[in-house]
Every structure is written in structure tokens, then in C-alpha cells.
């Protein structure tokens, strides 16, 4: 955000605030968005510190006892510690599995979205700044890609590439870069017409400098908003693909794989193996979307008071 111009905004002069303070005040104006942010903070904390706060290491096979398999939530284990959310078929504590699963899901989603953002922004800025044939080619590819549903593109790529963390991240990047490219180009085209770009060009600054030091920072707010929504989408898509058996390998189970793993037992009434990872996934996606919606409202200059 830019520095406040007290001459233009006399109403704000009454309560001296930095732009960041104003941003925070606007953000916490909505109770539901605040709740979303709190939930998201908890989820992030759990994901980052999973190895230290989990009751057990769910992937240390020596700690697992097959005799503990498929226990209901709240059942006590042999050594007296209760399995709060039950256990899966191998006697793994579901709570620990979910903590680790969140870690994987978030890591994959955030990494993929971040890489897609860098690729998409570069393409979008290039298209907007240079125009002409470059723009036509890039935007035509974007249009064609966006006319196909994300899951189809991911299916094609995974059918081609096979399984693995790197493969699914590549698939997610390929799905998402076009959204970033389109948003960035749209914003950049508006910014490009503004006088500061002309001024920078008049100073005979290099193209790269104009694009990255002048154009890029001014395109950031809408990208940040798109980014939150696309991280949620990436997490949901990864979970879906893992559920279909096309995503992550069994050695690094994300939430989607945990849910798929419990699917068989769901039909016999052992709901917890699928249900609780699903709830964790749901909270993650909804809280990110809530925060994203509020960011959009707060950062949208048209809605600013």
C-alpha cells in the first residue's frame, strides 16, 4: 500500500494510523474473517510443529502395533494413552496422522501455488509490458488452458508423468499458472497506462528494471488475493488427486490419501479414519477462503472508505 496522503484524505487525519494499522483494523472488522484467521493460524502451527506436538510419530513403524488397529476415538492404547480420534487399520493414531497430513498437504499446496505464482506473474507481466505477438501467444495459451477444467489438465499430466511429490507439484503449477498470468496481465495493463511507468521509461531505465521495480510491486495486491484462493484450490485438488490414487505416494500421506485409506472402512461404519482427516481438510480450505475473501474486500481500492 502507498503512504497516506493527508491532503487528499482529510478524514483520516483525525485518527493517525499507518496504512498497515488501517489495513489490520479493516481486516478485523469482520468477525467471520477473524475466526477464519485464528483457525488458519492454529492449522499452520500444527502443520509446522507436527513432529513436536504429535502424540506419536505415525510413520515410525516400530511404534505401531497392529493390535491397535481400527480403534474407536477415545479408546485407550496398551500403554494407557488414549487415541483421541481413533486409529487406522495399522494402529496408527489418527490425530498424529492428521497433523503430519496437514504438514504434507500445506507444503505441497503452498509450494505449488508459489511456483505457479512466479511463473504466471512473469508470463503476465511479459505479456502486458511487451504486448504484440508475445502477448497474443501467451494469452492464447492461457485462454485455451482455462477453457479446460483443472482436473482434466491434472489428469493428463499425471497420466503422463506418473506419481510422486515432484510430479504432483508440477501438475498443480501447470493447472494454476494461467490464473496468475491472467490476473497479473489484467492488473498490469491498468498500471501500465499510469504516468509513473511513462516517467520511468522517460528516464531510460531498462525494461527489466521498469517491469520488476516499478510495475511488479503495484500489481501485488490483487495477486495476493488470488494467491490465497489458489492455495486453497491447490490443497483441494491435491487431496482429490491423492484420493483418486494419482497423487502422493503412500510414503508421504497427505490428507487426501488418509481419507482414501479410510474409505474402505467407512462402509463398515468405521467412519473416523476418513471423517477426521476430511474435517481437517475442510477447516483448512474454508479458513483460507474466508481470509482470502476478506483480503479481497480490504485490498480492493474501489471499496475503500
Amino acid at each position: 500500500m502507498t503512504a497516506p496522503d493527508t491532503a487528499l484524505e482529510p478524514a483520516l487525519a483525525a485518527k493517525p494510523q499507518t496504512p498497515f494499522q488501517r489495513f489490520l483494523a479493516d481486516f478485523f472488522d469482520s468477525k467471520i474473517a477473524t475466526a477464519g484467521l485464528v483457525v488458519l493460524a492454529i492449522i499452520l502451527f500444527v502443520a509446522i510443529f507436527a513432529p513436536w506436538i504429535s502424540p506419536q510419530n505415525p510413520y515410525d513403524l516400530s511404534k505401531l502395533d497392529i493390535m491397535d488397529g481400527r480403534l474407536e476415538p477415545g479408546t485407550k492404547s496398551m500403554d494407557g494413552k488414549p487415541f483421541l480420534l481413533g486409529t487406522d487399520d495399522q494402529g496408527r493414531d489418527m490425530l498424529s496422522a492428521i497433523f503430519y497430513g496437514l504438514r504434507t498437504s500445506l507444503a505441497v499446496g503452498v509450494t505449488a501455488s508459489f511456483c505457479a505464482m512466479i511463473l504466471g506473474m512473469t508470463m503476465g507481466l511479459t505479456a502486458a509490458y511487451f504486448g504484440g505477438l508475445v502477448e497474443t501467444i501467451i494469452m492464447r495459451i492461457v485462454d485455451i488452458q482455462l477453457s479446460f477444467p483443472s482436473i482434466l489438465i491434472a489428469l493428463i499430466l499425471l497420466a503422463v508423468l506418473g506419481q510422486g511429490v515432484d510430479k504432483i507439484i508440477i501438475a498443480l503449477i501447470a493447472v494454476q499458472w494461467a490464473y496468475y498470468a491472467r490476473t497479473t496481465r489484467g492488473t498490469a495493463l491498468v498500471e501500465r497506462r499510469k504516468e509513473y511507468i511513462e516517467a520511468a521509461q522517460c528516464l531510460a531505465l531498462g525494461d527489466r528494471r521498469v517491469v520488476f521495480r516499478h510495475l511488479f510491486p503495484n500489481c501485488l495486491p490483487p495477486i495476493i488475493v488470488v494467491n490465497t484462493v489458489l492455495i486453497a484450490n491447490a490443497i483441494a485438488l491435491e487431496a482429490t488427486l491423492s484420493f483418486l490414487g494419482l497423487g502422493l505416494p503412500i510414503t508421504e500421506p497427505s490428507l487426501g490419501l488418509l481419507i482414501a485409506n479410510g474409505f474402505t472402512y467407512l462402509l463398515s461404519g468405521k467412519y473416523w479414519i476418513s471423517f477426521f482427516p476430511g474435517v481437517a481438510l475442510l477447516f483448512t480450505i474454508v479458513s483460507i477462503n474466508l481470509v482470502g475473501d476478506q483480503l479481497r474486500d480490504v485490498l480492493n481500492p474501489r471499496l475503500q472508505k
Binding site: F243, G256, L266, V286
Partner: peptide, 23 residues
């Protein structure tokens, strides 16, 4: 409708099975 947008389809499917088929 916001929930319908953000919930992954497969999870909703599982919940439907859990409620209407199993329970």
C-alpha cells in the same frame, strides 16, 4: 453456496455415503 464451492467433491461424496448409506 460458499461451502458448496469450497468443499472438495470427493469428501462430500464420502459424507453422503456415511450418512445416507451407512448410518
Amino acid at each position: 453456496s460458499i461451502l458448496g464451492f469450497s468443499l472438495p467433491t470427493f469428501w462430500v461424496g464420502l459424507m453422503l455415503i456415511m450418512i445416507f448409506a451407512v448410518f
